[in-house]
Each structure stands twice: as structure tokens, then as C-alpha cells.
Simulated assay, not measured.
Amino acid sequence: MKKTILFVEDEESLVSYLEPELQFENYNVITARDGEQAWNLYKENKSIINLIILDWMLPKLDGLEVLRRIRRHSKVPVIMMTARDYIGDKVAGLDSGADDYITKPFDIEELLARIRVIIRHQDDQKDTSAVYQIGDLSLDTKSRQVIKNDEIIQLTQREYDLLLILLQNINDTLTREELLDKVWGINFDGQPNIVDVYIRYLRNKIDSPHHESLIQTVRGVGYVLRYENHD
């Protein structure tokens, strides 16, 4: 079945270039030219949208506001596009729930590779059904729910993927390179410290106050998910 991408971009030349490229790769493409239209199209088509490519600078509503609105309702993967290679922009986008980002100008093959990684993760997770648990934290791959102390924890797609890999390897130390390959894909050419950024996001969401972090740093190597019950 064809995957559907909501492509949000106001630059006509980029739309006329990317839209047919995505269609050639066998994606259905819904295109929005401004943030307000993007939000309306998302609401109308959210049941069929598999991925959103979202420009930062948009008329009417900027990309960050569109992302925030979407994240109140859905974990659908979002790739942010920005013309400015400012770390502050990237951090703001990731903090607001973006799963990935790409800086203009970019090579079409890089964007397509990132799309394939995200779609593959979606498909892989649909093919398996399992419940993983550590302490009072559980992840159900069928419902895609993460529960802590009987409360649902809202995670982005990327945070979910990272937590799932860690849960599948409890007590095993994973290097940053292994996590990059498993979560972001072997073709990812961004900054390796993206792993550290997402580990911090996860800790903020799943750790209990006054307790040691479930995700422990193995200095100079990577991270391990470990639970030590001191009760």
C-alpha cells in the first residue's frame, strides 16, 4: 500500500521539484502552501498520513506552531526543514516533537533516505506485538503506548524508537553508533550527539524524581537501560 506524505512548503520552486520526486518514489503526496492550510489538511487526512515534511518558515502559521498543534493529537513522524543551520532552531524543533530535521539546501537522496528509515521503523513495529517492562515503565508495541506509574507517557516517534531499542536490550550497553544505526539508520549523516539529545528527552519523561535514571551513561561508550530496586 502506498504511503501518504503531507508536504508543507511555500517555496514554489521547491514544491515543483520535490512533489514529483516523491510521487516517483511511489508516495501519495498532499501538498500545503502555508501553515493554516497544512493544519486543515492534516485534520482532514490524519487517518491516512504516514509522514509529514514540514518547512519552518511558513505564511499564516509557522512550522513550529503547526508541529505543536499536531503533537497535541498525534505521534505521526515529522521531518522539519529549515533554511538556517542554527542549532537553536534544531533544538526548538526537536523539543516541540520533530522526529528529524534537514537543512536547506539538501540533496534529494538524503531526504529520501531519511523518509525510508522512518517508514521502515513504522512497518517493522506493526509486524511485531510485544510488551516490554522495566520497573514501573512498560511499552506495548501493539497499542504503541508507553505507561509509567499507570499514566500514559507521550513520546515522539523518535523517542519511542529509541526507548524500544533500549528495552529490547535491557542491561546491554549500546554504543552511540549502534543507537544511531538502529534508530536513525546507517545513512544518517547528522551530528552523533543527536543520541545524547534524545536520551535527555527520554530521561525527562520516564525517570522518577529522587531515583537513579533508568537510562545510565557508560562513560566513553554509550548507554544502558538498567533498573535497580532499592526498596
Rank of each mutant, 00 (worst) to 15 (best):
residue 45 N to I: 05
residue 153 I to K: 07
residue 57 M to A: 11
residue 96 S to R: 07
residue 68 R to W: 05
residue 132 Y to R: 10
residue 134 I to W: 07
residue 147 I to P: 04
residue 151 E to G: 00
residue 95 D to H: 10
residue 59 P to R: 10
residue 49 I to H: 03
residue 140 D to I: 08
residue 63 G to H: 04
residue 101 Y to R: 11
residue 62 D to S: 06
residue 112 L to F: 13
residue 130 A to I: 10
residue 151 E to R: 10
residue 67 L to R: 07
residue 162 L to R: 01
residue 156 T to K: 01
residue 151 E to I: 08
residue 122 Q to S: 15
residue 130 A to Y: 08
residue 90 K to H: 09
residue 116 R to A: 15
residue 98 A to F: 10
residue 62 D to E: 09
residue 84 R to E: 09
residue 73 H to T: 15
residue 96 S to T: 07
residue 68 R to G: 08
residue 153 I to F: 04
residue 164 L to E: 02
residue 98 A to K: 10
residue 67 L to Y: 06
residue 134 I to D: 02
residue 64 L to F: 10
residue 89 D to T: 06
residue 126 K to L: 15
residue 153 I to V: 14
residue 102 I to A: 07
residue 46 K to V: 03
residue 126 K to Y: 13
residue 58 L to D: 03
residue 130 A to H: 11
residue 120 R to M: 14
residue 163 L to M: 02
residue 146 V to T: 07
residue 120 R to K: 15
residue 73 H to R: 12
residue 62 D to K: 03
residue 127 D to W: 05
residue 39 W to N: 13
residue 64 L to V: 14
residue 79 I to M: 13
residue 86 Y to K: 13
residue 61 L to C: 07
residue 138 S to E: 09
residue 56 W to H: 07
residue 123 D to Q: 14
residue 79 I to N: 06
residue 143 S to W: 02
residue 68 R to T: 11
residue 59 P to Y: 06
residue 143 S to Y: 01
residue 57 M to I: 13
residue 87 I to K: 14
residue 102 I to R: 02
residue 74 S to R: 13
residue 107 D to S: 08
residue 127 D to K: 15
residue 40 N to D: 09
residue 85 D to K: 12
residue 68 R to I: 09
residue 60 K to Q: 06
residue 98 A to G: 05
residue 150 D to Q: 14
residue 68 R to A: 10
residue 104 K to D: 08
residue 132 Y to M: 05
residue 96 S to P: 01
residue 104 K to H: 08
residue 83 A to Y: 08
residue 86 Y to I: 01
residue 134 I to P: 02
residue 147 I to R: 11
residue 39 W to R: 12
residue 121 H to E: 09
residue 161 D to E: 10
residue 144 R to D: 01
residue 128 T to M: 12
residue 72 R to W: 08
residue 89 D to Y: 14
residue 81 M to S: 06
residue 106 F to K: 07
residue 96 S to W: 07
residue 153 I to Y: 03
residue 36 E to Q: 15
residue 86 Y to C: 00
residue 42 Y to S: 03
residue 121 H to M: 12
residue 99 D to T: 01
residue 116 R to I: 13
residue 96 S to F: 04
residue 82 T to K: 05
residue 126 K to T: 13
residue 54 L to C: 06
residue 138 S to K: 04
residue 120 R to Y: 11
residue 163 L to K: 01
residue 42 Y to K: 03
residue 164 L to A: 00
residue 81 M to E: 05
residue 66 V to S: 04
residue 126 K to E: 14
residue 67 L to D: 10
residue 158 R to V: 02
residue 89 D to F: 13
residue 148 K to R: 15
residue 146 V to Q: 01
residue 120 R to D: 12
residue 157 Q to V: 01
residue 61 L to W: 06
residue 141 T to A: 05
